[in-house]
């Protein structure tokens, strides 16, 4: 049995290694794809110049325009895709585990509608106090305000009953959605921009967006991963978890705040990309099992891989026109998920 157990840990390391390699390949390969035709060979060479130690071995043989397309347009967008996908994967996994509810996703407690309200207000009222970063900043503030309200509505005498939290989140979402609908109804020619933001996408994002989202996503994800084993125990129920030495109320608060942080960061730079945070955790639970110590990192990696590929499709399929990536994620992800549901006999939730 010890052998079996060691095998399991080895197996986990293998999974992480494979997925990391796939993610690396994904980044490199998708960088070669795009509306502007730049040969793969040139792309590789440009990328290598950005690596330490080996960057002096390459003699530049490309135009400045090509380097700009690769390094300032495609690469930041792809890296942001990795970040947002990973954030949504981790946040979705955590929410589903915490709520013990297969319908939970990163947006369930109202973060998305708060962010949307912030972003849409910016568009409708034409705000530009922070220049091109006004929308992400306002979205982040909207998300933070929404989660602050939901959290305080749901907490009762220092405790946070998860079902109340869930319902408070749904109520908040409905209320904010009504306001959003009203704004859209009266938005006139600005409607297109609103719809485009709501569907979620990564077009036109640069390194600054990456730098805005990165610290929050890194911090939140790290905190959540530290509590991975506690999340496993929480699946036994709150009382049993308490009996096994988990400070349940503290853990719930830390998890809700961390999840909110990374979701808000992701939404503020990418809009509301659906499906990834709901389905990736399910797919990974089917593939690697329910243990959060492997489930969280693999959901992060696969979330990143998945979003980068779907975004690549979104920007190339009818190039130079872009399709919102949210459409692609559901269009290609849902059938795959249904296939997994049908072929796996073991109940997953």
């Amino acid at each position: 049995m010890y052998k079996n157990y060691l095998k399991k840990i080895f197996h986990w390391k293998l999974i992480i290694t494979y997925l990391t390699v796939i993610l690396g390949l994904t980044v490199v390969l998708t960088t070669t794809l795009g509306a502007a035709h730049i040969s793969s060979f040139v792309v590789f060479k440009i990328l290598i110049t950005r690596l330490p130690l080996v960057n002096n071995l390459i003699i530049p043989s490309w135009s400045i325009g090509e380097a700009t397309i690769i390094l300032q347009i495609r690469l930041p967008r792809i890296i942001l895709g990795v970040l947002v996908g990973a954030a949504l994967g981790v946040a979705g996994t955590t929410m589903q585990g915490l709520f013990k509810n297969p319908m939970a996703d990163p947006y369930i407690i109202g973060i998305s509608s708060g962010a949307a309200l912030g972003a849409i207000s910016t568009i409708v009222f034409g705000l530009s106090i922070f220049g091109m970063y006004t929308i992400p900043l306002m979205a982040f503030m909207g998300a933070a305000a929404a989660i602050f309200l939901v959290y305080n509505i749901a907490s009762v005498r220092g405790k946070l009953p998860v079902n109340t939290l869930l319902l408070a989140g749904i109520a908040m979402t409905l209320f904010l959605s009504a306001i959003i609908s009203l704004m859209m109804y009266t938005a006139g020619e600005k409607l297109h921009g609103i719809v485009f933001w709501l569907m979620g996408g990564l077009w036109g994002r640069n390194w600054n967006h990456v730098m805005m989202a990165f610290p929050f996503i890194l911090l939140g994800t790290t905190v959540i991963y530290i509590f991975a084993r506690d999340l496993n125990v929480m699946l036994l129920g709150e009382e049993p978890a308490q009996h096994l030495g988990i400070e349940v109320e503290t853990l719930k608060k830390i998890m809700i705040l961390s999840t909110s942080l990374i979701t808000a960061a992701a939404v503020s730079v990418s809009g509301i990309i659906g499906f990834v945070g709901l389905i990736i955790p399910h797919v990974m639970r089917i593939l690697v099992g329910p243990d959060h110590r492997i489930l969280l990192p693999s959901s992060a990696l696969v979330g990143g891989i998945f979003l980068v590929w779907t975004d690549t499709l979104a920007r190339t399929i009818i190039a130079p026109t872009e399709i919102p990536v949210g459409i692609i994620t559901a269009l290609f992800g849902a059938p795959f998920f249904i296939y997994l549901l049908r072929t796996r006999k073991r109940a997953m939730f």
Partner: peptide, 23 residues
């Protein structure tokens, strides 16, 4: 006391356990 400190000394077997995950 910290929950973990209690849990080292005291274990609880509940009336019913609902575990819906495939551990």
């Amino acid at each position: 006391l910290k929950s973990a400190e209690i849990a080292k000394n005291l274990a609880v077997v509940p009336q019913e356990s609902v575990i819906s995950f495939a551990f």
